[in-house]
Design a protein around this nucleic acid. Structure first.
Lengths: 209, 209
DNA sequence: TGACACCGGATAGTGCCACTCTCCACCATG
DNA sequence: CATGGTGGAGAGTGGCACTATCCGGTGTCA
């Protein structure tokens, strides 16, 4: 198909598609002449991926470029998969040292991670920011958070293991992680409401009794 | 203290503080003369809150203004607290209708939420985006996600109930929700790694046997 | 064959937003 | 009295995703 049809099918303006081509997040089509190229279903899929990452994942085009680059050359073995995925998932720049309390907590959980891992510094910074803003985020709460995220991570790993080939597993891990975050955030809001109203109902029942 | 000392204590440039004053996210100090004002510890706290929300919460100044406005006039009763908090927490604009599968899932969980709630549409859009990007996000996985987030939400509600006064509870809910998101995201990454390596170890052990 | 829209490619411009700088009159402090 | 910080307002900066303009070439239909 031509670029105009690609635009029509994806709902993305032609200008933006050209921009994506220039930025290297959309591979060029098979050139049929000097001034026209042929795009296939894989381009439609790619455009949808890019849009989802940008709009819902909050990923910049630099991050998208890294992700699609990794998806195009997936690691051969399942073992490196998670490392390769972690290397490609955009993470906030580290802002400060990690509180020893955090590393202690992770050790206690048996989550031995290489000190300096992006997710570790991100955790340290996020906890420090929350506390600086006045949230009483104690170790007990963090442990409960960790328990909840373990449930989530089990589901994540199962989803990745269900993939047929390494390329699909890679896509599931990377894209599922990035686009799964907003899903989890929304579920957290809904769960807060549900838990709160359940507690309220229980309190009312006690009051009536 | 004067604005320069406020800048020094918070590490935020004077120009930025003036900007925050203009944008209404930082209340003016007590004027001691026509060209000088006095700032207190509450200003230091507020600046730290604003920085945390902007830098780590990814909240824009418009959202920060809404949040600090709500924190200054907290609801009197605990009952409205969650509603008031939900109204103030920035949510992505709804992009499309919610898949009936999602609403069915929530009903099944007993999370009866007003159709059209921001968190509900956000969930629908996030799931739709993930699926459009090729992530096989099935209902079973969503159920597991919901289970994990229930654990998180229980911790959230307990944290809010531990607050002394409604104002502190409000701050804990709103700020804890916004700044808790990056904490959870980081924990998810670490949990994925931990779960994956645990599974790997188990598989190796089976192989050796 | 010729008109014409469309194609690719490159350059420049837009809008948003958080921040930063400039300028000014004024006052506190040495 | 001189200096420099202060409050206040406007304009400028930089990053980034996108959008518009322009160009020569080309497929297509009359």
């Amino acid at each position: 198909m031509r670029i105009s049809e690609l635009a029509e099918r994806t709902g993305v303006p032609v200008h933006t598609l050209k921009f994506y081509l220039r930025e290297g997040v959309l591979p060029p089509g098979r050139a049929t002449s000097r001034t026209s190229a042929d795009y296939g279903d894989e381009h439609v899929e790619r455009v949808r991926l890019v849009r989802a990452l940008v709009e819902h994942g909050g990923v910049g085009l630099r991050g998208v470029r890294a992700i699609v680059g990794a998806l195009e050359s997936p690691p051969p073995s399942r073992h490196d998969l998670l490392g390769a995925a972690a290397a490609v998932i955009p993470t906030p720049a580290p802002r400060g040292p990690v509180d020893p309390e955090i590393t202690g907590l992770l050790e206690e959980l048996g989550w031995c991670t290489w000190s300096g891992a992006p997710a570790l510094t991100a955790l340290g910074d996020a906890v420090a920011a929350a506390r600086a803003a006045g949230v009483p985020l104690d170790a007990a709460t963090l442990r409960r958070y960790a328990a909840g995220m373990t449930v989530v991570a089990e589901a994540d790993v199962d989803l990745a293991l269900a993939a047929q080939d390494p390329a699909e597993a890679m896509r599931t891990v990377v894209v599922g992680t990035v686009l799964g975050d907003p899903v989890l955030v929304a579920l957290r809001r809904l769960a807060q409401e549900a838990v709160s109203s359940r507690r309220q109902a229980a309190a009312d029942a006690r009051e009536d009794a």
